[in-house]
Design a protein around this nucleic acid. Structure first.
Length: 758
DNA sequence: TGTAGGCATCCATACCTGTCGCT
DNA sequence: AGCGACAGGTATGGATGCCT
């Protein structure tokens, strides 16, 4: 019998000493299957004397195969060695110990991933299973097979989703599993039932496990579970002599790669992983995430530092918030699921941890599929110290206010150049016909590995976009396709960067360097051409041009780019007015549709106080909408007045900064580092990646001594002067100064200098 | 287990210079 | 006059978060 099933996750399990691939699947009715297929992990040996190696291995009882493969496009003979163990790496090491002049390949690729690569199947897609044995074990259907094929993407099967929120009780600092109990679990089951467990901890945990077993969800959705919750719960359970058997077949969670916790047979989605990936978010909380997704949800936030106190005084508030979070998580997942599964199918990384994997690994996994298809061996990560190379070209802007400016962008410049000049690790050659401006050479033929990958991606995206135009944008199909085209874009845009990443298996600096050098060449030629056509280049960054006096010329320019450069460029927008300072990568403009863009300035930086950002945004808005410097100056002054009168809420004074390393690795004591150290002293857990919020208070000495955790600050102790002098005034002045406003004008209020106040 | 480089900006810190008090 | 302490100014580089 043949079945078509949706692949949810893969694991390699050892049964009776044999490695078996377990494919966790769903059918179109939502039934759960385990498809079992024997699998021999394997690796390759490449050397001069293939016959000898084969003979040697055969006498030692290994199953071997002599095969033709490629290394960076060059054909080689290789020996494929099958080993029936999970730990391929150490056995490979042992086998080649006494061999000379050999190289080993793919012993470091995880067997479960290799199973997928070699069988050409992708998670979050449909597989065709030729069944040789079928049995039922409880509600689980088990199939044994010796053949699976890939059927591609199809509609999602019905999945049972459970969303979760956990609350712990800690009197001082962050909760610690060795000390502080779980006091509340809020969850929504797949049937929509809302449950809150509180009271005796042992009872809570036991009930939780029971509910999971009964409901048997396919997906867990939570926030911070990889970093915190699963390990915490497991430790608490252990203390009560319980096992946290929330995985299928009564298994416990276990920590896997990429800092991810894996739960057998289920997809464990931690939306915090996704939040961390979104650059628009500054503090990466669930609240911010919900907001970013445009979901209008009410969350009556109880912050971490006030949980214990609130629980004592008003437990209902904590309960309400916790359930609101569980509801929000469910809604987020609804919006995001298409994207998550698309990204999983495209890259071949199981949905379970595709969010945890970094961009580099997503790209790499995608490339590994192509490698197997083309017979290219997967190289190891290089052991090198990366040498920096030159990137994009940025032209200094002309400071001041400019009217009527057209912005022209090259469309995916780096991918296009890589395709155009066949830039790839396997075409790099001293006798290549394409010579980059910095003198690297690439062969014209055959088509390179990376250009091929890029073409495939771009072509698929083009097809999807074409299809999308015929669909109702609100239909399910449109949502799925849109998610997929976004996933494709992410991967194709990251391929250039991947080649310059020292952690990449296919790291090739020449490729990255040649790409940017062609990029600089193209933008310089374009600036020249624009000037020749009579336009004025106000500013340019990497692949964009800001042009004045463009009427009747820009069409010619775009045509020239297409015909003479063989690239695509687009008139992205027109600014009715745009303001530049002396600095690169910072400007603000108002488009022909009257939309205000603020780029690079303090107003869009998460490490400035809200009040400074608000003041600058307001000033810029007035400036661009009225074109009146005096009006804008008035706005700025108003903000300063508000600070003088102490009429600003404390939360607008918080400055958030990220902790990027362990606290003892810092050479310089910065305010947020000092605050973090204080918090750690008080029992708070602070890890790299955490954001610390502080307010500057009155006092003497260096700034870092005057920074205090925001939730401990009283209005009387705030150093208002700091917020005027170092936050609001500089931010406003940044955009006013290029228009001739002097600092004294900003600070003189009602004829007297502001200085008189202090 | 980090796609890339280019850039501005703030602030701590090291260093430099001039002044002053003391011998 | 010579020396050291110290204040004040300046150059440098660590750190962060943005842009394309």
């Amino acid at each position: 019998m043949v079945r078509q099933l949706w692949l949810l996750d893969i694991a390699l399990e050892i049964e009776d000493g044999k490695p078996i691939a377990w494919l966790w699947c769903k059918d179109s009715l939502g039934e759960t299957y385990v498809v079992k297929k024997e699998y021999s992990p394997n690796f390759y040996i490449v050397g001069d004397v293939v016959e000898e190696i084969v003979a040697f291995l055969k006498t030692h009882g290994y199953r071997v195969e002599e095969v033709s493969r490629k290394i960076r496009g060059r054909s080689v003979k290789a020996v494929k060695v099958y080993v029936n163990v999970e730990d391929v790496e150490s056995i490979a090491k042992k086998i080649i110990k006494n061999m000379k002049n050999v190289e080993v390949y793919e012993e470091d690729v995880r067997p479960s991933i290799k199973f997928l690569l070699e069988n050409r199947v992708k998670p979050s897609g449909d597989i065709i299973v030729h069944e040789s044995m079928f049995k039922e074990q409880g509600s689980l259907k088990i199939i044994e097979t010796d053949k699976v094929e890939y059927a591609g993407v199809s509609t999602l099967p019905p999945l049972k989703i459970m969303s979760l929120d956990f609350v712990y009780y800690s009197e001082a600092g962050s909760p610690r599993p060795e000390r502080d109990p779980v006091i509340l679990i809020s969850l929504i089951t797949s049937s929509g039932e809302k449950i809150q467990l509180s009271g005796d901890e042992k009872k809570i945990l036991r009930e939780f496990v029971e509910i999971v077993e009964r409901d048997d969800p396919d997906v867990f959705v939570s926030f911070s579970s990889n970093r915190l919750h699963w390990n915490y719960l497991q430790e608490r359970a252990r203390r009560h002599g319980l096992r946290l058997t929330i995985g299928r077949l009564s298994s416990e969670p276990h920590t896997s790669i990429h800092g991810h916790v894996s739960i057998r047979g289920r997809i464990n989605i931690d939306l915090e992983d996704m939040a961390k990936d979104i650059p628009e978010l500054t503090v990466e909380t669930l609240e911010e995430f919900v907001d970013y997704l445009g979901l209008k949800l009410e969350l009556d936030t109880v912050e971490e530092w006030e949980v214990a106190e609130t629980w004592k005084k008003n437990p209902e508030r904590v309960k309400k918030y916790s359930m609101q979070k569980a509801e929000a998580l469910l809604k987020c997942f609804e919006v995001l699921k298409e994207y998550i599964f698309s990204l999983s199918e495209l890259t071949g990384i199981p949905a379970d941890y595709v969010l945890t994997a970094s961009t580099g690994f997503r790209v790499e996994n995608y490339l590994m599929y192509l490698a197997v298809e083309l017979g290219e061996l997967i190289p190891k990560k290089p052991e090198i110290t990366p040498t920096p190379y030159v990137g994009g070209l940025v032209k200094s802007p002309e400071p001041g206010l400019h009217k009527d400016v057209a912005v022209v962008d090259f469309r995916s410049m780096y991918p296009s150049l890589m395709i155009k000049y066949n830039i790839s690790f396997d075409t790099l050659s001293d006798d290549g016909e394409y010579v980059s401006p910095n003198n690297y050479r690439f062969k014209k033929e055959p088509e390179g590995f990376l250009p091929r990958a890029l073409k495939t991606l771009i072509e698929e995206r083009r097809k999807i976009q074409q299809k999308l135009r015929t669909l109702d944008p609100n239909s399910t199909e449109a949502r799925v396709l849109d998610a997929r085209q976004r996933a494709i874009k992410v991967i194709s845009n990251a391929i250039y960067g991947y080649t310059g990443w020292a952690g990449a298996r296919w790291y090739t600096r020449e490729v990255a360097e040649a790409t940017t050098s062609w990029g600089r060449h193209v933008i310089m030629e374009s600036m020249k051409k624009a000037s020749e056509l009579g336009m004025k280049v106000i500013y340019s960054d990497t692949d964009s041009l800001f042009l004045q006096n463009y009427t009747g010329k820009i069409e010619k320019f775009l045509k020239w780019i297409e015909e003479d450069l063989g690239l695509e460029a687009k008139l992205e927008k027109i600014y009715k007015m745009v303001i530049f300072t002396e600095a690169k990568k910072k400007y603000a403009g108002i488009t022909s549709e009257s939309i205000i863009d603020i780029v690079g300035l303090e107003a869009v930086r998460g490490d400035w106080s809200y009040i400074a950002r608000e003041a600058q945004r307001d000033t810029v808005k007035t400036l661009l909408e009225t074109g009146n410097v005096h009006e804008a100056l008035k706005i700025s002054k108003n903000y300063i007045k508000k600070l003088i009168n102490r009429e600003v809420e404390l939360r607008k004074l918080i400055i958030w900064k990220q902790i990027t390393r362990s606290l003892d690795e810092y050479e310089a004591t910065q305010p947020h580092v000092n605050v973090a150290r204080q918090l750690v002293q008080e029992g708070w857990k602070i890890q790299p990646g955490d954001k610390v919020g502080y307010i500057i208070v009155k006092g003497s000495g260096p700034l870092y001594k005057r920074a205090k955790p925001y939730f401990k600050v009283h209005p009387e102790e705030v150093d208002w002067d700091y917020y005027i002098e170092k936050q609001v005034a500089p931010a406003c002045l940044r955009v006013l100064e290029p228009l001739g406003v002097k600092i004294e004008e900003l600070k003189s209020i009602g004829g007297t200098s502001l200085m008189d106040f202090f």
